[in-house]
């Protein structure tokens, strides 16, 4: 009974990491100018345009775009900035707001028909953003706590016997200066990469078993693929929002930690 299905299944090849490789946009274009790069620029322009239309000419009673913009602003301020930055929240809102909306848009490109590539599924993009936050974190830490003070507060939590520091300081150092920025970028990248691969897989299953090789036994699998594609698209949208939120939240956390070492 399973033989026809097996034969069909052998021909099916699941999409792999190659779906993230794009050729240059046109013949003779520079090799770095690919679809994800174009979408990254497009996303930045859209964020600028949205912010412009919402906040360039603010009214006391907000209408239209200003309403939406203020909802976004309030969300980032109350959920991301204030819990970690307290009274410094407003000063850091321009950075955090643009960061949140840029990443959200980049992520949502993954489920927009025809675009269908989450920009952050190429690690270069989250890596640059994480590096930016990393530089800001170290700069602020040294500026507000002094060079020695910053590393002392980071690596030597107060009130411990000296031998313990030998054991713990290397862990603190590695965790704060190497692992943290690394996971900051990789968390966003890996979520977008895996999510896009899952969507590609299920839609490939649906397409293959319903259009390319339609068989009585395979059609059930094809229908399942379509259903899973729809379900996973909804799930992806949630993840895309969540990861934009988390990336911005961690940025606020690192900045707050450099401004006020209270541990």
């Amino acid at each position: 009974m399973t033989l026809p299905l097996m034969l069909v299944a052998e021909d099916f090849t699941a999409p792999g990491p190659s779906i993230f490789d794009f050729p240059p946009l046109w013949d003779g274009a520079p090799s770095w100018l690919t679809k994800p790069v174009l979408m990254a620029i497009f996303g930045a322009i859209v964020v600028c345009a949205l912010a412009w239309s919402a906040f360039a000419n603010p009214k006391l009673v907000p209408r239209g775009m200003q309403n939406i913009g203020e909802m976004g602003y309030q969300f980032v301020r109350d959920q991301v900035a204030r819990p970690f930055l307290g009274k410094d929240a407003e000063r850091w809102m321009p950075l955090l707001l643009s960061l949140f909306f840029l990443i959200l848009l980049w992520n949502l490109f993954g489920v927009v028909p025809l675009i269908q590539i989450p920009v952050a599924s190429h690690i270069a993009f989250p890596a640059v953003l994480a590096a930016l936050i990393y530089i800001i974190k170290i700069y602020l830490g040294i500026k507000h706590q002094g060079f020695v003070g910053y590393f002392k507060n980071m690596m030597f939590p107060a009130g411990l016997p000296k031998p313990i520091y030998v054991l713990l300081a290397p862990i603190e150092f590695l965790s704060n200066l190497i692992i943290a920025p690394f996971t900051h970028a990789v968390r966003l990248f890996a979520n977008m990469f895996a999510g896009h691969l899952i969507l590609a897989f299920f839609s490939a299953v649906g397409f293959w078993f319903l259009f390319e090789k339609l068989t009585p036994l395979g059609s059930g699998l094809g229908v399942l693929g379509v259903i899973m594609t729809i379900a996973m698209t909804g799930f992806e949208m949630f993840i895309e929002f969540l990861q934009a939120f988390l990336f911005t939240m961690l940025a606020a956390m690192y900045i707050g930690g450099s401004l006020h070492p209270d541990h």
């Binding site: 819990p83 970690f84 290397p170 862990i171 603190e172 590695l174 965790s175 704060n176 190497i178 692992i179 943290a180 996971t183 939240m249 961690l250 956390m253 930690g257």
Partner: peptide
């Protein structure tokens, strides 16, 4: 949140060091 997001990083660092 500080604790929740620092724990994995500390555990990984401890293992690595």
């Amino acid at each position: 949140a500080d604790a929740a997001w620092s724990v994995p990083s500390y555990l990984l660092s401890g293992i690595l060091v």
